[in-house]
Simulated scan of single mutants.
Amino acid sequence: MPRPKESFEDIFPCEFYTPEELLDPDQMYTIREIARLLQGLDPDADIDEDTEAVIVDWAVPWVMLNADDLVIGEPPTEDAPGYYGLRTDDGSE
């Protein structure tokens, strides 16, 4: 159900990190790790499954929105997650 803006004590701008602000150019990250970074956490932070599910839901659209600035690394095994990294000036790794 919608709520009036005045019912909130604080309202903040909806701003997200750019890939350059978020990712180390020499590293590749899973969606789960990107989700943690978007929340200001360490990529290997221990969080509960429910929280992880919510932040991953935010990370997937972020990756899609920023796809032009990212590269994808093939998963090391069939059942492993994919890895994403920052695209460099030459358009690759």
Rank of each mutant, 00 (worst) to 15 (best):
P81L: 05
R32K: 14
L37K: 13
Y83P: 00
Q39N: 15
E9Q: 12
G85I: 06
A53K: 11
T88Y: 01
P61Q: 07
G91C: 03
T88P: 00
W58N: 08
E33N: 00
E74V: 13
I72S: 06
L86I: 01
D10N: 11
M1W: 02
A67T: 06
Y29H: 12
P19K: 14
D42N: 13
C14I: 07
A59N: 13
D26Q: 13
P76Y: 08
R32W: 00
D57E: 14
D90M: 06
I47P: 00
V63Y: 09
W62A: 11
I34H: 06
V54K: 05
L70S: 08
I34A: 05
M1C: 04
E74A: 13
A45Y: 03
K5H: 12
E33W: 00
I34E: 08
D26T: 12
D42K: 15
D48C: 04
G85Y: 04
D57G: 13
V60I: 15
L23G: 04
A59S: 11
D46P: 00
I31C: 02
I55N: 04
L23W: 01
D48T: 01
T51M: 09
A45E: 15
G85C: 09
E20P: 06
P61C: 07
A45S: 14
E20V: 09
A59L: 04
K5S: 14
V63M: 09
D57K: 13
D50G: 02
W62E: 10
D69E: 13
R32I: 00
E20G: 04
D44N: 15
S7A: 15
M28N: 05
R36Y: 02
Q39C: 15
A80F: 10
Y84E: 02
D50W: 06
P25K: 14
A35R: 07
E52N: 11
V60N: 11
E33T: 06
T18P: 04
I11H: 00
I47F: 04
G73F: 05
G82T: 05
E20Y: 06
D89A: 15
